[in-house]
């Protein structure tokens, strides 16, 4: 597949009027969102507002039905792509609940992933020694114990280790768009600092990050360019980083009042 970026597309991700439902129940009810390269967007919202659904739909989870709207990623129709092709195009989802794969080492898992992505781009598999060097370099980023890299994917990892492992994978795969789905949940303050530190180090003018979170806390470490408030499947308010603080102070009720729900 030709890999063409026209250079004219300033938005990396464009979501227009996205509606999605599961088992006939509509969860997303017309999301509009534009993300440019180099930006960090935070999406906040109360429980059940559709935050995790949005991340799952972007990553291509099959359980959801898209009933309306469009998503383009670097000019491509994202919704037309299989989940693996989305990943190969540069979309990365850091899971809220990372999945365990017994017997498959982290290293083997990542090597397979990297080489699949490279094959998609018409590149040859990565040399073993380059790969190991990359592992070493990226491990430091999230202060991941070398032993964890050799253990089975997420098996027997603590909550914090699982989340760090997600960021480690992100560092290894170097996505264009990273979606962090409640990566802060279940993290103590030290783990939070490490995870956020990793994300910040990975930030560049060429990639973008969507941080999905329930609490403002994470945004002390990962400072967003824009904050969106998701409520009942819609983005009801967007603003600068201060919006997160306002939300923290007033609680989600103020949104409910504001949108007259």
């Amino acid at each position: 597949m030709p890999y063409c970026l026209s250079g004219k597309i300033s938005e990396m991700l464009v979501i227009k009027n996205l509606h999605a439902s599961i088992d006939g129940k509509e969860i997303l009810r017309g999301i509009n969102l534009e993300v440019k390269a180099g930006e960090i967007h935070a999406i906040m919202g109360p429980n059940g507002s559709g935050k995790s659904t949005l991340s799952a739909v972007l990553a291509g989870k099959a359980d959801y039905e898209i009933t309306e709207g469009s998503v383009t990623f670097n000019g491509k129709d994202l919704l037309e792509l299989s989940p693996e092709d989305r990943a190969r195009e540069g979309v990365f989802l850091a899971f809220q609940y990372p999945v365990e794969i017994p017997g498959v080492s982290n290293i083997n898992f990542l090597k397979t992933a990297i080489n699949e992505i490279r094959a998609y781009k018409g590149q040859t598999p990565m040399e073993a020694k380059d790969f190991l060097a990359l592992v070493k370099e990226k491990q430091k980023l999230v202060e991941l114990d070398g032993k964890l890299a050799n253990r089975s994917v997420n098996e027997g990892f603590s909550g914090g280790e699982k989340k760090r492992n997600e960021i480690f994978q992100m560092a290894m795969l170097e996505p264009k768009l990273a979606i962090l789905d409640e990566t802060d949940s279940g993290l103590d303050i030290d783990a939070l600092r490490i995870v956020a530190g990793g994300v910040n180090k990975l930030k560049s003018k060429d990639n973008a990050t969507i941080v999905i979170t329930h609490y403002q806390r994470l945004l002390d470490y990962i400072v967003p360019d824009v904050v969106h408030i998701l409520y009942k499947g819609k983005i009801v308010k967007s603003g600068p980083k201060e919006l997160a603080l306002e939300l923290e102070e007033k609680g989600y009720d103020f949104i409910k009042e504001e949108v007259g729900a």
Binding site: E84, L93, V99, I101, F109, T112, E116, I117, Y120
Partner: peptide, 30 residues
């Protein structure tokens, strides 16, 4: 074999067949 495991692999760029191979081989590793 979990849909969750398969989706996790896919979200890292690994297609269905390869994912099954990985998961099954992991399961049989011993």
């Amino acid at each position: 074999i979990g849909e969750d495991q398969l989706f996790y692999c896919k979200s890292r760029g690994i297609d269905n067949e390869k994912a099954i191979g990985l998961i099954v081989n992991g399961y049989c590793k011993e």
